[in-house]
Computed example of a mutant assay.
Amino acid sequence: MAKEQLTGKEKAAILLITLGPQKSADIFKHLNEEEIEELTLQIANMRMVSPEEKQKIIENFYQLCLAQEYISEGGISYAKDVLERALGDDKAEDIISRLTSSLQVRPFEFARKADAGQLLNYIQNEHPQTIALILSYLSSSQAAQILASLPEEKQAEVARRVAIMDRTSPEVVKEIEQVLESKFSNIVSQDFTDAGGVQTVVDILNSVDRGTEKHIMEEIDIKDAELSDEIRKRMFVFEDIVGLDNRSIQRVIREVDNSQWAIALKGASEEVKESIFTNMSKRLVEMIKEDIEFMGPVRLKDIEEAQQTIVNVIRKLEEEGEIITPRGGDEIIV
């Protein structure tokens, strides 16, 4: 079976066979059902492949991964330069061509490598729609820092525009990119690209402090109650702990310092306190209740920060598959 005769699916199937069942299973987790079915069928029908052919495909895959990493680090030009030095002009050109033909490099790649404070200086005075578009292409942590630093009267409007954003033409994206082009790295070309949406603003709000989150949600609730409800359905806030099953709460308790629980529960509802205390040992409950009683007045900001710390732990455990959090009113099946 000559290399030139192999299709992309055949190469993918050979790679999975070579990697073995465990690693292949891990890769399948990132594919949709249709892709899994096609690859499974391809693997089942795969003919004999020589060790030499397998090695070539692994090397080819490694080079593509390396090229993609270089693109992420410094853009296509940087990747091409590094690969040319390592593999020669022709080989580098071939890898970059094959990679970029199947890989959509997201706009504002240069901005995702920039400092959030630096970006803020250049976009804070722009129209809310422009800011919303830029934030939609940044990482959640970057966007959260910028959103929290905007004037309060702009925060909710920008968040709302991120949530209702749909598709933006490449001409508009390019025009906005050029505003920052003189200060940042080269910009790659793009086709029509999905950006924004409810999930994007949820990711951003999940990363900001609770004070900013509350303000933005209150403002959006006034302007667009339906949108606010949709955002809340996808978010997890401290009060949602009551919706976790006991095993998940116990898992969270083990990950959070006792001092954090005391501060966080200082301003919590009785329902939340009951959910937590029910899953703690009697001695630990008594200790935390004593801490709450004797710590005196606590600033709202400190309570919110402690609660946000716990929410971040919950979100991290959910991402790692350790626990399941309720979404949109769904009940957890234990």
Score class of each variant (00 low, 15 high):
Glu4Val: 13
Gln5Glu: 14
Leu6Ala: 10
Thr7Glu: 12
Gly8His: 11
Ala13Arg: 05
Ala13Cys: 07
Ile17Phe: 07
Thr18Ser: 15
Thr18Leu: 04
Glu35Ser: 13
Lys54Asp: 09
Gln55Thr: 07
Lys56Tyr: 14
Ala67Asp: 09
Gln68Val: 08
Tyr78Asn: 06
Val82Trp: 02
Leu83Gly: 05
Leu87Trp: 02
Ile95Cys: 04
Ile96Ser: 08
Ser101Thr: 10
Leu103Cys: 04
Pro107Ile: 12
Lys113Trp: 01
Asp115Cys: 02
Gly117Asn: 13
Tyr122Gln: 02
Tyr122Gly: 04
Asn125Gln: 05
Thr130Ser: 11
Leu135Trp: 09
Leu135Cys: 03
Tyr137Val: 01
Leu138Pro: 05
Lys154Ala: 08
Lys154Phe: 07
Met165Tyr: 05
Thr168Lys: 12
Ser169Gly: 08
Val172Asn: 00
Val173Ser: 01
Gln178Ser: 11
Val179Leu: 14
Lys183Asn: 07
Ile187Pro: 00
Val188Cys: 00
Gln190Val: 15
Phe192Thr: 10
Phe192Met: 08
Thr200Cys: 12
Val201Ile: 14
Val202His: 06
Asp203His: 13
Asp203Thr: 04
Asp203Arg: 11
Ile204Thr: 07
Ile204Cys: 05
Lys214Asp: 14
Met217Gln: 13
Met217Phe: 13
Asp221Thr: 12
Ile222Ser: 07
Lys223Phe: 12
Lys223Asn: 12
Ala225Phe: 07
Asp229Gly: 03
Arg232Pro: 00
Arg232Met: 08
Gly243Lys: 11
Leu244Val: 03
Ile249Asn: 01
Ile253Thr: 02
Glu255Arg: 11
Asn258Thr: 14
Gly267Pro: 00
Glu271Phe: 00
Glu271Asp: 14
Ile276Cys: 02
Ile276His: 06
Phe277Arg: 01
Asn279Gly: 03
Asp291His: 00
Phe294Lys: 04
Gly296Gln: 12
Val298Leu: 11
Gln307Glu: 05
Gln307Leu: 09
Asn312Gly: 00
Lys316Phe: 00
Glu319Cys: 01
Glu320Gln: 15
Pro326Ala: 12
Gly328Gln: 10
Val334Phe: 12
